Simulated scan of single mutants.
Amino acid sequence: MTTADIEHQILLSSGLDRTANFEHWRNGVASLFEATPANGDLDGFSADLASYNLGHFLIGASSATAQNFNRSPELVAATGVDHLLIQLYVKGECAYDADGGIGKGVAGDIVCFDLSRPMRSRTTDMDIISLILPRAMIRLMPRTIDDLHGARLDGATPLGVLLGEHMHSMAKVAPRLAGPDGSLAAEVASVLVSSALSAAIAAENGTLMDSNLQAIQVFIERNLTNPALSTDMILRQFAMSRSVVYRLFEPIGGIANYIRERRLLLAKLKLASVGTGRGSVARLAYATGFPSEDAFSRAFQQYYGIRPSEAIRNAESGIQLKRRMEFAEENWMQPWLDKLRATA
């Protein structure tokens, strides 16, 4: 396979004036962040980027001058994706606020951001390698994954060195990864990321999941929008007894509650995608696997404390932002994020 066989985007600052370089860069990362130069103007600005879409994951290497990055609640609603962004700082450092979690990463460190949540950061001049994986590929308990937003892995630890070197290698061979190779690379990356980040936040709390529970949770994630998804469907799929499945899910609130919670989180991500006209609540209910609008509305209000119709209206600014993003010819990132899928 060659680079020509793999969807990719290359941005080179050479040959571009600073304004053009910044506009290409800003539009390219618009689905991840609103980017602004740290000093407030384009004096000395430069940014280079090589990014690859491997279908199961995205990986890119970039080099840029100091900037501010902001992922606002409106941008989260507009993009509507449920992926993790893992960034290795090869050079430079960042100070960040991950939805209230304050942290700092220095050269060699690996920082994780949950793209379903707001964040902001300020960086120095930097060289970074970025990896984006669907949440369903992370082999950790869901509540542990929720704690990954803003998690920092010390680059000097053994797992930090291992994951950092692997990200270097993946970025290097990305132009030749396609088909089965890309799928295998995604599986390896998910294992390393899961192990390394669990060590970074709470290794002593048993964050690695039972293999049966992991398999069922992956199956649930891939069938959330299927109204037929149920305990009985899972029993048939995995040839397990009801008591075994109930015992597996008991520590995390039970299987029915788990499915409902994952569907409600998906609904929150899709608020900006259903429009604000008549029938928007029903469209959101059926798009997230609920059997009826009434069942969805009751569950949504109980979980979030707000009616779904109200939440949809509040997402209007995100809808407007998404429309503007769709008109930006150089926003190639959004289609990549929308189509990103977990390995089979």
Rank of each mutant, 00 (worst) to 15 (best):
M1P: 09
T2I: 15
I6S: 00
L12H: 15
S13P: 05
D17N: 15
R18S: 13
T19P: 07
W25H: 09
W25M: 08
W25T: 08
R26I: 07
L32D: 05
T36R: 15
T36M: 12
T36W: 11
P37G: 07
L42D: 02
S46E: 12
A47N: 03
L49P: 05
Y52P: 00
F57E: 04
A64H: 10
T65Y: 04
A66F: 06
A66I: 06
Q67H: 11
N70M: 11
N70A: 13
S72C: 08
A77I: 02
Q87P: 02
V90Q: 12
E93T: 14
C94R: 09
A95V: 13
R117N: 03
R120Q: 14
M126R: 11
L133C: 05
L133H: 02
P134H: 05
R139H: 13
M141N: 11
P142L: 07
R152W: 05
G160W: 04
G160H: 01
L162R: 14
V173Q: 10
A174F: 02
L177Q: 03
A178C: 10
G179D: 07
P180R: 12
A185P: 06
A186G: 07
V191Q: 11
S195K: 15
A196E: 01
S198M: 07
N205Q: 12
L224K: 00
S230V: 09
T231W: 04
F238T: 03
M240V: 07
R242M: 10
V244R: 15
L248D: 01
G254L: 08
I255H: 05
Y258K: 09
R262S: 05
L269Q: 12
K270I: 04
G275E: 01
A282W: 04
A282F: 03
R283W: 06
R283A: 15
L284I: 04
A285W: 01
A287R: 02
T288G: 03
T288L: 02
F290L: 00
F296P: 00
S297N: 06
R298I: 11
A299L: 02
R307S: 14
R307A: 14
R313N: 12
E316A: 13
E316K: 12
G318P: 03
G318S: 05
Q320L: 14
L321E: 03
R323L: 10
R323W: 10
M325F: 03
F327L: 14
F327C: 14
A328C: 12
E329Y: 11
W336L: 03
L340Q: 00
A342P: 06
A342V: 11
